[in-house]
Design a protein around this nucleic acid. Sequence first.
DNA 1: TACAAACCTGACTAAATTAGTCAAGTATAG
DNA 2: CTATACTTGACTAATTTAGTCAGGTTTGTA
Lengths: 141, 141
Amino acid sequence: MKLTSKGRYAVMALADLANFNSVHPVSLRDISLRQGISLDFLEQIFSKLKKNNIVKSIRGTNGGYILNKDPVQIKLANILNAVDEEVKTVQCKKESKKGCNSKTSKCITHNLWDELEIHINYFFEKKNLKDLINNTSESRN
Amino acid sequence: MKLTSKGRYAVMALADLANFNSVHPVSLRDISLRQGISLDFLEQIFSKLKKNNIVKSIRGTNGGYILNKDPVQIKLANILNAVDEEVKTVQCKKESKKGCNSKTSKCITHNLWDELEIHINYFFEKKNLKDLINNTSESRN
DNA sequence: TACAAACCTGACTAAATTAGTCAAGTATAG
DNA sequence: CTATACTTGACTAATTTAGTCAGGTTTGTA
């Protein structure tokens, strides 16, 4: 299973972006400073987010990024997919790698990992960016 | 988040063990052959399972391992803990690593990852070994 | 028009982790 | 007494991660 900094940063950055979305586009530099994420790394991440139509970029002075949809329409699943964070619990799925063809009794636990994958993805399907920004602005103290 | 082969193998091996538990102890060699897992790797894994009282070992000729409890009492959470697979979604938890102190607006997504962690752990708390062996013996075809 | 802010792209890499291997045991049933 | 099986710990090749680095291109504003 993969869920690494890239995915986490993507979500953090977009939550940040959602908070400041109203007025100007938000520059990566600002996000970098506020969230403590390397600018270069952010660029990699946003390149993918843009390709997946989650954000739009505005070039030139005072440019930056804006969300391409309403925060409520941006599911976490979308974000994580965009940055190639696959929540894969089994490898034996893609092409029958050794140790997992259903003919033999091998890969006894195949169903289990499938269920887990569904369980986790359900979580990411349910949550959207809006949920996040509500959550944080409240839980500050 | 971590969920790697070690955890997967541990679960597979124990499911296999549960299937053959009734009569003799089961040797790691057998499990290795049936599940296609390296014997040496299995030894590492079972050493930990034993330390955590999930299995008992029986030495000597025809020795091997047996479950230490009824399969229904062995939760997946127990197994994964035993082999050090922590399902941790945030690092910023242990000691306030940079980027996550609740004073600033950083780590906006902290709550989210906490929720995810709970969500996943719930799954592992619910499932036990018995569930697994029922599942597989049925879904064979 | 100049120029700086900002986006954009791809190659590269140090560090960590994974998934084992290898070697050298110890214990015990038969 | 010896083959079988467990036990322990050190070691390592390959992969992945989390970025860095270098060199662009684009465009708003003065």
